[in-house]
Design a binder for these strands. Structure first.
Length: 204
DNA sequence: GGCCAGGACACCA
DNA sequence: TGGTGTCATGGC
């Protein structure tokens, strides 16, 4: 909480995730896997321009067509397959309704999402926190890099292990988790990128 | 022109 | 469980 406050004082509210709708959050969460967000944005613009930002549309279109549309995001063939896998899950289990899916408890939905091919722990947690508004802490590359450099977690810590560090030290609060992870990304992008620990780091 | 970015999975031992 | 290869574009 002490670190959170320092970062918040430095960067302020981040208003995350950068998307217009919960479904766009899900698309972005899958497309950004090991990929710079700037490339993901181009892919999402393509989808928007073609009116493909609803579950129904994406469920219906041809997978090869989808792959071409998301090409700028990289790994486009595999990501098209992963988006399709999620849509198949959404329609078969929840009749295509995000509302119904979000009504499921965080822990149960997490288990279900992890069964979907192409959705791992980080993607699942991003969906739970930023699309479904559930109090789940997201661990990503920035989180591990920054907090291992400052010796709060081990560099090779497993996902769940790193996650426990945060959840066991913080109140379980969706807004807090949302803001915290957004601040970590901000710090990771702009300051804690190359130098292991630098003078201007707000959390040292 | 090499390196890297908001992972996940298949395959192997 | 742990290690390695694979997927690919765009910015610097």
């Amino acid at each position: 909480m002490r670190i959170y406050k320092k970062m918040y004082e430095r960067f302020g509210s981040r208003h995350w995730w950068p998307a217009d709708t919960p479904f766009e959050v899900i698309i972005g969460a899958i497309l950004t896997q090991n990929t710079a967000w700037s490339n993901v944005e181009k892919a999402i613009v393509n989808l928007k321009n073609q009116g493909l930002t609803t579950p129904k549309k994406l469920y219906q279109i041809n997978i090869n067509f989808l792959a071409q549309a998301i090409r700028p995001a990289g790994y486009y063939n595999i990501k098209a397959k992963r988006l399709k896998a999620f849509l198949k899950f959404l329609f078969q289990r929840y009749n295509g309704s995000l509302k119904k899916m979000f009504a499921v408890s965080a822990s149960n939905l997490r288990k279900e999402l992890l069964q979907v091919n192409g959705i791992g722990p980080e993607t699942a947690d991003s969906i739970l926190l930023y699309a479904a508004n559930k109090p789940v802490f997201v661990i990503d590359a920035y989180t591990k890099r920054i907090f291992s450099r400052h010796n709060f977690i081990k560099p090779d810590a497993a996902y769940d292990q790193a996650q426990r560090f945060f959840t066991s030290n913080l109140p379980k609060d969706t807004k807090l988790f949302n803001e915290y992870h957004a601040l970590i990304v901000e710090l990771g992008k702009n300051i804690c990128k190359t130098k292991p620990r630098c003078e201007i780091c707000p959390i040292k």
